[in-house]
């Protein structure tokens, strides 16, 4: 029995990536900006979306939300938009392109301007799976501490925006924004960082601006995936928010 070495040279996620590329093509054709939201559990993804959707209105926005179990998040969101789909992944700790494809199968995408994909709360696994998104947004809550970003570099490596959520707690926690910004930029030196609070509304206007500008840039750009590093208001990038 002769041994033989067969050269294969293939990406493990080729199938997922092919599906994602096809989704991205469909989204672009329909004029939908798709944003993949990733964070650890409880960083505030659903809460941010319940504040974002009414603020975007009348621009129609849909949400696909992934959780290991329960449709709690979808129920929280369905007062904000008629387009909500819950994906319960069981034991799978991330979303894959095929799951998104199935979740949106019955929607007429041309009716939508935005689609938010709330990934499963997890800072490791979702990073590897392209979902056909135009942009990746990573959320860190101030309650997670300043150095969380550099402990989870893969998720930041392709991030287009970092949201520092629950910014209303910056002062009570004595959170050091400079240290946080340094920690993010150690992994991804160019990504913009925006503090937001769904509670006080801080940063919400800049977040909406970012979405609108990105949608315009993405739809007019010829690139399949525009990783536009958009200009955010000066103060949100580096200024200390503690005062």
């Amino acid at each position: 029995m002769a041994k033989e070495l067969v050269v294969l040279e293939q990406r493990l996620l080729e199938r997922n990536d092919t599906r994602a590329a096809e989704l991205r093509r469909r989204f672009k054709e329909a004029g939908v900006l798709v944003v993949n939201l990733m964070s650890s559990p409880g960083a505030g993804k659903t809460t941010l979306l319940t504040a974002t959707l009414p603020a975007l209105s009348p621009e129609p926005a849909a949400v696909v939300v992934g959780d290991l179990a329960t449709d709690n998040d979808a129920r929280r969101l369905c007062t904000a938009t008629p387009w909500v789909r819950q994906i319960t992944t069981g034991t799978v700790c991330h979303l894959e392109a095929a799951m998104v494809e199935e979740a949106i199968a019955r929607w007429d995408l041309t009716q939508l301007r935005y689609l938010f994909i709330e990934n499963v709360g997890n800072l490791v696994c979702p990073a590897s799976f392209d979902l056909g998104e135009a942009a990746r947004v990573v959320l860190f809550a101030v309650t997670e501490g300043e150095d969380k970003p550099e402990k989870y570099p893969p998720i930041l490596h392709r991030a287009d925006l970092v949201l520092l959520t629950k910014s209303d707690l910056l002062a009570p926690l004595g959170f050091d924004v400079q240290r946080f910004v340094a920690s993010v930029h150690r992994v991804n030196p160019k990504v913009p960082i925006l503090p937001v609070s769904a509670r006080t509304g801080e940063g919400l206007a800049a977040w909406l601006d970012w979405l609108r500008v990105l949608r315009g840039a993405w739809l007019s750009g010829s690139d399949e995936r525009v990783r536009a590093r958009l200009q955010l208001p000066e103060r949100v990038n580096h200024e200390d928010q503690r005062s």
Partner: peptide, 30 residues
């Protein structure tokens, strides 16, 4: 990973490789 360029000190580094997840080859018997 560094945050500044080790050669010139600039802050503008792009990550060009590092997230590979690839099947290279298989050794088989028939």
């Amino acid at each position: 990973l560094p945050t500044v360029c080790p050669a010139c000190g600039a802050l503008s580094l792009d990550l060009v490789h590092g997230d590979e997840l690839e099947l290279v080859a298989a050794e088989v018997v028939d």
